Amino acid sequence: MSTQKESKINQLLQSQPSGVVLLSSWLSEKGYSLDLQKRYRKSNWLESIGSGAMKRAGENVGVAGALYALQFQKDMSIHIGAKSALAYLGKIQYLEFNTKKVFLFGGKNEKLPAWFDQHNWEVEINYFRTSFLPSDSGLTSIDQTTFHLKISGAARAMMECLYLVPEEQHLIECYELMESLNNLQPAKVQALLEACTSVKVKRLFLYLAEKAKHAWFNYLKPEKLDLGSGKRSLAKNGTYIPKYQITVPKELENYGQ
């Protein structure tokens, strides 16, 4: 390989953090032609991990490194959310958490690329495409040694957990998670609730926050929220909560009493 091409690959590797996926489409935009990419693979600078995606040769790249590529090379909103985000944020120390399962959320029209979907990340990927919250609201940034990643902040992650009730998430566990969120900022919570389009999520969030007796709950303004009309049942033969017009499991209503 010519000195010029070696210099170009060195520039690339120095400009990008280690442990991340490099997308072929993004490399092309940066001036690395498909032919040049092919040469880099042939010269063992890069390795393919699927159609249109590569990594540094010899590196181990996990889900976080793949998400980095989606977020910062492809400008997608796909992120770690729900219980997985709360685990990253250190909110689940006292609960059993299956680290072999990762919850991802993205926009209604955002499909996981084939290379992501088909690659073995050694974890179970649970991906949900939703629009019940704005794609850029309630996110935070976490450090992953060589790069940073956008994930759901605590309030958004809690709402994503409630979005998954009851099919993918137990409501009682949601209450246990809510109990750990004693330092949320009410103004940010209020803004997220006002932006949320899911009546179920809003009613459950208010109910659980009030039940947990969080101080920040007293600063919320439920009267500004569209809580819809009609009753919502989330458990058979459960307990009806008139204030929020929801039926919840009896063991939840009796929890802690």
Rank of each mutant, 00 (worst) to 15 (best):
E124M: 01
L204W: 02
L184V: 01
R129E: 10
L208K: 02
P134F: 02
K150D: 10
A209S: 09
L206W: 06
K188W: 03
H214E: 06
D143Y: 10
N182F: 06
L192A: 00
E210K: 11
V199C: 10
T145F: 15
K213L: 13
K202P: 06
K221G: 06
S137V: 03
K188P: 05
A187T: 12
A155H: 01
L208Q: 03
P134Q: 15
L139S: 13
Y127F: 07
L193T: 06
E173V: 02
G138N: 05
L162D: 00
Q144I: 10
L225A: 04
E179M: 14
N126Y: 13
Q144H: 09
A212R: 09
L220Y: 10
P186S: 03
C161I: 10
L139P: 05
E194S: 07
L164S: 00
M178S: 08
G138W: 00
V189F: 01
Y127R: 04
I125S: 01
Y207C: 13
I172E: 04
S180Q: 07
A191E: 13
K150M: 12
K188M: 01
L193I: 08
E223A: 07
E194M: 08
V165R: 14
I172N: 14
K188V: 03
E168H: 11
Y163A: 08
E173K: 07
H148W: 09
A154R: 11
I151E: 03
A195G: 12
L171N: 10
Q144M: 14
E223S: 14
L225S: 11
C161Q: 07
P222K: 08
E173S: 05
G138D: 12
F132C: 05
K211A: 00
E179K: 15
E167Y: 09
R203S: 05
Q185D: 15
K221S: 13
E194T: 03
L206F: 10
C196E: 02
D136P: 00
H214D: 08
R203E: 00
C161N: 13
E210M: 13
E160D: 14
K224H: 12
A195D: 05
V165Y: 06
S135W: 12
L225V: 09
T146R: 10
A215T: 13
M159I: 02
F205E: 07
E160M: 01
K200T: 09
R156P: 11
N182L: 00
L206T: 07
E210D: 11
D143C: 11
A154S: 14
T146F: 13
C174E: 15
T197Y: 05
E167P: 10
E194R: 08
A191Y: 08
E173R: 05
L162W: 06
L171H: 01
F147K: 07
E167A: 08
T130S: 11
Q169K: 01
T197I: 07
F205V: 13
D143K: 13
E167H: 12
H148N: 15
F132G: 05
L149R: 03
P222M: 04
I142Q: 08
V165K: 04
R203A: 00
L162Y: 07
Q185I: 14
E124F: 03
A187R: 15
V189D: 11
L149I: 06
L193Q: 05
L208T: 06
E194C: 06
Q190T: 12
